[in-house]
Amino acid sequence: MKLGVFSVLFSQKTLDETLDYIAAKGLDAIEIGTGGYPGNAHCDLDGLLADESKLQAFKAAVDSRGITISALSCHGNPLHPQKDIASADDAVIRKTIQLASKLGVAVVNTFSGCPGDHEDAKYPNWPIAPWPNDFQEILKWQWEEKIIPYWTEIGKLAAENNVKIGLELHGGFSVHSPATLLRLREAAGDAIGANLDPSHMWWQGIDPVQAIHILGRAGAIHHFHAKDTSIDPINVNHHGVTDMQSYSLMLDRAWQFRTVGYGHDMKVWADMISALRLVGYDYVVSIEHEDGLMSVDEGFTKAVQNLQQILIREPLGEMWWV
């Protein structure tokens, strides 16, 4: 396995500064935003696609530091009921697939998106209960008319470009759990898989180790984010896991994102790393820092230090004791 970082947390730095910084920390890989919610501070998507010399210079900048690009990330909502929003996010996804293919990057990370509840809706509708039955009708319409058709097309485009799609299982979007990911993968093809982020499993009440087993046995883990979550035992009884308060209200929230090791101990993280190895995942563990209690530098540095202890790097050898 290799250790990497989602470079969006260094958006205030240039690409060269970011690459130098993470190389000095001993990292092997970088995940780069190309647009959508992560922005494109380190990647001029249109410019790189239009100019071969810029493309080669971009690739050389990464290669010269001994770093690989684990994924290009363009998280957005290509199924948004407002057509201008959906079209813009869809265009970024398609261009990102094209750029990944040109750069030889294996994975494009994004969200599944979430449609509205009918053709003329204005806002996304995320059904999370089977009753009243209206929610079932909405869910059926979303999957049959929007989710499966769109991702079948994108999955085909990705496969044609030798790229895999890593959907982040995130609340508020149609694909948010192992079951919803596997449902879409069955319909849309094996190019569709997970960018598995344990932080979003914990707050939904899903054990990330079990999620790794479920998705890994199906060959459906394309990328992995390293981010932690802490759940407040008092506040969660007040607000529930679908707490709608701002992330900035950390003292009152039911749960909050933490850097690696500050929500769950290193035995839990070691169990996840072991589960990834067990199911055959031997790719990048990409740090995502969204800890409101730590600066970018401190939170990132602690995540690196904690993960370096437990990451399994060497190839499997023979079981000499067997």
Score class of each variant (00 low, 15 high):
Thr96Tyr: 10
Cys43Gly: 03
Ala41Asp: 05
Ser87Ala: 15
Gln98Gly: 05
Ser101Ala: 15
Ile69Cys: 06
Val62Pro: 05
Gln56Asn: 15
Gly66Asp: 12
Val62Arg: 04
Leu99Cys: 05
Ala88Ile: 00
Val92Lys: 09
Gly66Gln: 10
Leu99Lys: 00
Asp63Leu: 12
Ile93Trp: 01
Asp84Glu: 15
Ser70Ile: 02
Ser101Val: 13
Ala88Thr: 00
Phe58Arg: 02
Cys43Tyr: 06
Lys54Cys: 06
Ile97Cys: 07
Leu72Gly: 03
Lys83Met: 02
Pro81Asp: 10
Asp46Tyr: 02
Gly76Ile: 08
Leu48Pro: 11
Leu49Cys: 06
Ile97His: 05
Ala60Ile: 05
Cys43Ile: 01
Leu72Phe: 05
Ser64Gln: 14
His80Ile: 14
Ile67Glu: 02
Ala50Gln: 13
Ala50Trp: 09
Ala88Trp: 02
Gly66Ile: 08
Asp63Thr: 13
Ala71Ile: 00
Ile69His: 06
Cys43His: 03
Ala61Gln: 14
Lys54Asp: 07
Lys95Gly: 00
Cys43Ala: 10
Ala71Glu: 13
Cys74Asp: 09
Ile67Gly: 00
Glu52Asp: 15
Arg94Trp: 10
Asp84Gly: 01
Lys54Ala: 14
Asp51Gly: 08
Ala50Met: 11
Ala50Phe: 04
Ile85Lys: 15
Asn40Met: 06
Lys95Met: 09
Ile93Tyr: 02
Leu103Pro: 06
Ile93Leu: 15
Gln56Val: 13
Ala71Asn: 09
Lys95Ile: 11
Cys43Trp: 09
Ser53Thr: 13
Ala41Glu: 04
Val107Thr: 13
Lys83Phe: 04
Phe58His: 05
Asp46Ile: 00
Gly76Ser: 09
Asp63Pro: 01
Gly47Ile: 03
Phe58Tyr: 15
Pro78Thr: 11
Gly66Lys: 01
Thr68Asp: 07
Leu48Arg: 07
Ala86Pro: 02
Leu72Asn: 06
Ala86Lys: 11
Arg94Thr: 12
Gln98Asn: 10
Asn77Phe: 10
Ser53Lys: 13
Ile93Lys: 07
Ala88Ser: 10
Arg65Ser: 00
Lys83Asn: 08
Ser53Ile: 08
